[in-house]
Design a protein around this nucleic acid. Structure first.
Length: 288
DNA sequence: AAGTGGACCTGCTAGC
DNA sequence: TGCTAGCAGGTCCACT
C-alpha cells in the first residue's frame, strides 16, 4: 500500500485534501467492473453516516450488483431492484478486498459479495450510503436533482455558463463550488481552475464575460483531467480501491501555497476566506 | 429567487 | 509536555 506524506514544498498540510470528482471517478473505476454482476452475501453498516441506509440489509442478501456509475461526486451502484447511492463526503475512501481482514474503526460500510468486499472508510462520517428504489425516485432523485452539468459533457458550453451565471452576485468561486451549474470542482480544483483561467475568485459570477467563461470551462476540464490522469489529488485520506495514493497535489499552482511565490509571475499567493472556505489565488495573475 | 450561515464529524496542529 | 481551541471541508437545510 503506497502512502505518501501529505506535504507541499516541505510544509505539512493542515489537513488532507478531500475527495473531489477525479477521486470519486477513480474510486468508481477501481471496483466497477469487478463487482458488475456480483452477488451480495451481506451488508454491514458501522457507525451512522450522513443519512440512514433506508433499508434492512437482510433484504439485500442474494441481490445482484450492476455496473457502478458516477453523477457528480455521487456513485450509483445498481443493486437488485434499486441501488445504493454512495458519497465519500470529505474523508471517505472505497476499497475492495478479500473480506478476511477485520474491519477498522472507521470502516462504516462493508458490502460482502462473491467477488470481494467493498468497504467505505470514512473517519469524519460525512459520507453516505443510501438505498433508493431507483435513480428516478427518492431519495436518489432528490439528492441528484440540483446537480449541474457534468464538466466533460460536450453539450456544456461557455454561453451556457454565461447564461446560468448572468445576474448572479455571488463570487465566481462560490458559484463554481455550488455545483448547480457545473459539478465536480471542489475547493481545490475551483482554486486551481480560476488560477489557470486568470480570474479573481472574488469576481461576481454575473460579471464574468462569455470569453472568460470559456477560459474557465477549459480550465476546469484541464484541471480535472490532469487530476484524473495523476490519480487524484489526495495524499493521505484518499486512495483508490487498491490503496494507491494520488499525486496531483504536488502539482498544485495555488492551493495550500499561501505566502509562497506564484509559479507564473513575481507575485505571491494570497489566501482569503469565502463562505467560510479558504481560497488561494495570485493577485497579479488573476484579474477581477 | 438568491444569498447566507449553521450543522454534521473527527484528526491534526498551533498556541498556550 | 499536555491540553485545548480552531481549522479543514461537501452538502443539505433553515432562514433572511
Amino acid at each position: 500500500m503506497v502512502r505518501v506524506q501529505a506535504q507541499v514544498m516541505g510544509k505539512a498540510l493542515a489537513s488532507p485534501p478531500m475527495p473531489e470528482l477525479p477521486e470519486v471517478e477513480i474510486s468508481r473505476r477501481s471496483f466497477a467492473e469487478r463487482l458488475d454482476g456480483a452477488t451480495v452475501l451481506g451488508l454491514h453498516m458501522g457507525k451512522p453516516l450522513r443519512w440512514p441506509l433506508g433499508i434492512d440489509p437482510e433484504q439485500l442478501l442474494g441481490a445482484r450488483l450492476g455496473l457502478a456509475q458516477r453523477r457528480g461526486k455521487y456513485i450509483w451502484l445498481p443493486l437488485g431492484d434499486g441501488g445504493l447511492l454512495l458519497h465519500l463526503g470529505m474523508s471517505g475512501a472505497l476499497a475492495l478486498d478479500d473480506g478476511t481482514a477485520p474491519l477498522g474503526p472507521h470502516q462504516h460500510m462493508a458490502l460482502h459479495t462473491d467477488r470481494g468486499r467493498l468497504t467505505l472508510t470514512d473517519p469524519r462520517r460525512f459520507g453516505a450510503v443510501v438505498w433508493s428504489p431507483s435513480l428516478a425516485l427518492d431519495p436518489a432523485r432528490k439528492l441528484l436533482a440540483g446537480l449541474g452539468a457534468e464538466p466533460f459533457d460536450p453539450l456544456l458550453t461557455a454561453s451556457a455558463l454565461r447564461r446560468a451565471w448572468k445576474g448572479r452576485r455571488v463570487s465566481i468561486k462560490q458559484a463554481l463550488l455550488a455545483g448547480d451549474v457545473v459539478v465536480g470542482a471542489g475547493n481545490i480544483y475551483a482554486c486551481e481552475a480560476l488560477f489557470l483561467a486568470g480570474i479573481r475568485p472574488s469576481t461576481a459570477a454575473g460579471r464574468v464575460s462569455e470569453l472568460r467563461c470559456a477560459r474557465l470551462l477549459e480550465a476546469v476540464r484541464q484541471v480535472l483531467d490532469q487530476a484524473l490522469q495523476l490519480g487524484g489529488s489526495t495524499l493521505r485520506d484518499f486512495s483508490d480501491a487498491h490503496g494507491v495514493a494520488g499525486a496531483y497535489q504536488a502539482t498544485a499552482q495555488v492551493y495550500g501555497r499561501e505566502g509562497q511565490a506564484c509559479r507564473r509571475c513575481p507575485g505571491t499567493v494570497k489566501r482569503i476566506v469565502q463562505a467560510q472556505r479558504s481560497t488561494y489565488f495570485c493577485p497579479l495573475c488573476q484579474r477581477p
